[in-house]
Nucleic acid binder design. Structure first.
Lengths: 232, 232
DNA sequence: ACAATAGTGTGATTTGTATCACATATTTCA
DNA sequence: TGAAATATGTGATACAAATCACACTATTGT
């Protein structure tokens, strides 16, 4: 890779929170170990069971982390966006990939081989700690979803997931939005129910004005009310 | 804490795989930051929502990591044993505890405050990396269980969990054992089904000789057969 | 050795959610 | 602009698993 390209990669890597503690020099030299990769929409970046160990840093684009059953049903673990990373598990433990990662939108990413990543971690306690934090929050989320899945019904889980995804709405004071909203089918995979069930649940929530659909996505006018619904 | 006590703690900490890369000196000085704690059986060590951030290293004893629903139903995430650790999430990110940890048998543990643990990680890339590995395998397990829960039926999940828990049987060549076996109720919480359903599933598996109960616990004479059952 | 407690087995019934089978919208792009 | 492809809405039915209710069996302790 040319130095010019590496310099470009390095400046793009500034957008990755995990690497924010690196000095310019350290980031430059790490960027030298990275490759620039681009994917179109609906492309598979990582496939379950493969033995590659590269780490990916998302500069722009959206991807889904998911798994299939033999019968073709899907479970979605997470939606990844600009600034996120993935592929760290295999890079750390060398085991085969545990899930698929597929691009939704076109994606630009920097990727580096496992040894370069391990080397980065060994030499930078701050990056190491940042990754530990990332993985902690990952585990907390997985714990929560596992709990929801065994202890809650479909409607409660759907509400909980809506609350997790909602961000304060800049255009409606006090309100929350999910924008852009996933398709029912995708949301269903995330919650672990059928598409039809999500459709029925949303109808009810809409009838009670707990959620509102518009062009911006899905709005939650009153978060408290939805929380009440999620907890009983 | 007296130096004598710290020395004892240090030698006990040798049993913790996570700390195995530490030199005697480094371990001694870390042991100085630790406190020795003991719990009887059925005691709560960590409670969901609490803001303490201590890390625990299990010298002897067994504990369960779990969560309750409002209705009293339980989900068990993991069983921890000698050499394991817990409490690292809160120590790393400072957030409230995400689950309960309860002693099953009497327990002896070393515990240290979050800053001492963070300090240990910052100064020891090897320990840091070992923890990253531990958390990676944790995430893989959670991913798997989440997948099983949404994509598989109760019987398949029960078989999968049996396979996960089984270890090669030293007394029966080629066979596997789970020893000691959990109660049906506990196993049910782990798999995310009712106790009665586990009872019925075990009856079927016993009728087909896929599992055998005896005083040592639960034996799996032919792992391959059980795997077949789990995958269809 | 006995009662008390904890764990297990099994039928009958109810429940939630998947599945099937369409109708109806909405978006995409030729 | 119209046709194809995607996404959504909704009833009817099927089914797996929870729940309820109780008998039975081990384990524990005094």
């Amino acid at each position: 890779m040319s130095n010019i390209k590496a310099t470009i990669v390095s400046s793009e890597l500034k957008k990755i929170p995990l690497l924010s503690s690196l000095s310019d020099d350290a980031r430059d030299s790490f960027a030298n170990k990275c490759r620039w990769v681009e994917y179109g929409p609906d492309k598979s970046v990582i496939e379950r069971g493969m033995f590659d160990t590269n780490v990916y840093f998302i500069i722009t684009g959206t991807l889904h982390v998911l798994n299939y059953s033999e019968t073709g049903r899907v479970i979605t673990y997470a939606t990844l966006k600009d600034g996120d990373m993935f592929g760290e598990l295999a890079a750390i433990d060398g085991l085969p990939r545990s899930a698929w990662v597929c691009s939704i939108t076109p994606c630009q990413m920097a990727t580096c081989p496992s040894p370069a990543f391990i080397n980065l971690l060994s030499g930078n306690a701050e990056v190491s700690l940042a990754l530990l934090k990332r993985m902690s929050s990952n585990i907390r989320l997985l714990d929560d979803r596992l709990k929801d899945l065994t202890l809650l019904g479909a409607e409660q889980r759907a509400c909980t997931e809506l609350l997790r995804m909602a961000k304060p709405d800049s255009e409606a004071p006090g309100g929350y939005v999910i924008s852009p909203m996933l398709t029912h089918a995708n949301f269903a995979n995330l919650v672990g129910v059928s598409r039809e069930t999500i459709s029925r649940i949303f109808r009810k929530l809409r009838e009670e004005s707990l959620i509102v659909h518009n062009k911006r996505g899905l709005c939650i006018p009153n978060r408290k009310l939805l929380e009440q619904r999620a907890f009983l």
